[in-house]
Write a protein that binds this DNA or RNA. Structure first.
Lengths: 237, 237
DNA sequence: GGATGTTTTAAACAATCGTTTAAATTGAGT
DNA sequence: ACTCAATTTAAACGATTGTTTAAAACATCC
């Protein structure tokens, strides 16, 4: 009745005996995976339908049950493949301790490039954004695999730019300030589209311009934080 | 067959003749509205079901069709009531041109308070967040009614803090930097919960601490931007 | 080439969705 | 008390969802 919690392949009736998948089998499997990503990203997990996925993949509806057991099983595989693919495409910039300013600029560029990507792999970012607002059971692994590495590199770089006696929480807040500014140009993209007329948007909202601005803001903050003993140093009161 | 595009009340058969709603009528109507807000916020528009809304409102399922015509009609009313309620609860801080630093601090405080509210009206912010990622036909009116006023006040305040010859786009970017930092502590809340151990989170992530940090970052940036003719002034290269 | 296990297929399943219908109930005016 | 419009109610509608089933098609090995 209820399918036992076993491998992803349902055909594996007797445990320990690996089935030998056909060439067609892995073809339909990969075709489902390729079609599922954009659909999950566009409609969300619960909004996406296995019928639409199988339709765009030119595959029978029962195939997802056969190859992934479940709709959630398919989603897990999509997330897993996404992590592997992105690790290769966006290599973390090599950190040069002698030029932390340049490292910060490179990190901001990488962050913005990940946010504002508009190629055929834009659905990946969309999917990660949906996970941030509607976390599914795979969210924690996403944070550890995706966000933690960049967050650590960002805090290390910012540490070099400020007074080394600043408490760690302040440096972490500076990292969140950096990420937050980058993230806004994706989360708030629809709002910006309403707030700013199109004429201005076309000329000053490319990745390089935004990266330069955000880097300048954070460098100014770091300089001020570097010369102050306290966490906050009001200027006049 | 298909209900004609008319008033929200279906009972209004002959145009020009206002129906006189009962006491019970406006009671069920308001009870539906009160129940719909949190459900829409928690499940999203398409995820929410009129059955759950009517169940928590202790109202028949057909009532939403009678009073609001449609599920979307109910949603529009929820958004409309939300705008009116929030305009009263979060009055925009009065802007004193002589102390732009204080005005900025107050604006950041208001922004963060709107983001991190955890009272019984937390569903309102949740609903606005969902609109940002999954815009419905009411999104544009939300931006104009909710975001535009604070965005304008923010740009005016920042204008007083920087060189008055700076191009408008730079000031707008500074406003987005401010909003982005505040927004991150809500959008990235789930990620922060994984990245930062609970022990640290309890002591340095209250509204006042975060507002002080963000204000300090933006004041540092403004000071630097005020003394530079160019939009970006690299320090050493 | 027949036997065996793997994969695909069409069809149906039960559950749930938003919406509609027609009758029952209520409330106010005369 | 009767009338008539407003409102509520239970029930059903058609459509769509994820999942399952049993048979057909395929591939592989002896």
């Amino acid at each position: 009745m209820a399918h036992s919690v076993s491998n992803s392949l349902h055909s594996q009736r007797n445990p320990g005996v690996e089935p030998q998948p056909n060439e067609r089998s892995i073809d339909t499997r990969s075709r489902i995976l390729a079609a599922a990503g954009p659909v999950f990203a566009a409609q969300g997990y619960s909004g996406a339908t296995v019928r639409e996925i199988c339709s765009t993949a030119s595959v029978n509806i029962a195939s997802v049950g056969y190859h992934f057991g479940d709709k959630l099983g398919l989603y897990r595989e999509v997330i897993n493949d996404l992590r592997l693919a992105r690790a290769k495409r966006f290599p973390t910039p090599n950190t040069d301790p002698k030029k932390p300013q340049d490292t910060l600029q490179a990190l901001v560029n990488t962050l913005l490039a990940r946010m504002l990507i508009s190629e055929e792999s834009a659905w990946e970012t969309e999917l990660l954004m949906r996970e941030m607002q509607n976390p599914t059971p795979v969210f924690e692994s996403i944070v550890e695999g995706f966000f933690r590495p960049l967050f650590d590199q960002l805090t290390e770089t910012l540490r070099l730019l400020v007074n080394s006696e600043l408490p760690m929480q302040t440096v972490q807040h500076l990292a969140f300030s950096t990420v937050g500014q980058c993230l806004y140009y994706r989360v708030g993209a629809e709002a910006i589209q309403v707030l700013i007329p199109e004429q201005q948007r076309t000329s000053h909202y490319d990745i390089d311009s935004l990266a330069q601005h955000i880097t300048a803001v954070m460098l100014a903050a770091c300089e001020k934080f570097a010369t102050s003993q306290q966490q906050i140093a009001p200027s006049d009161r």
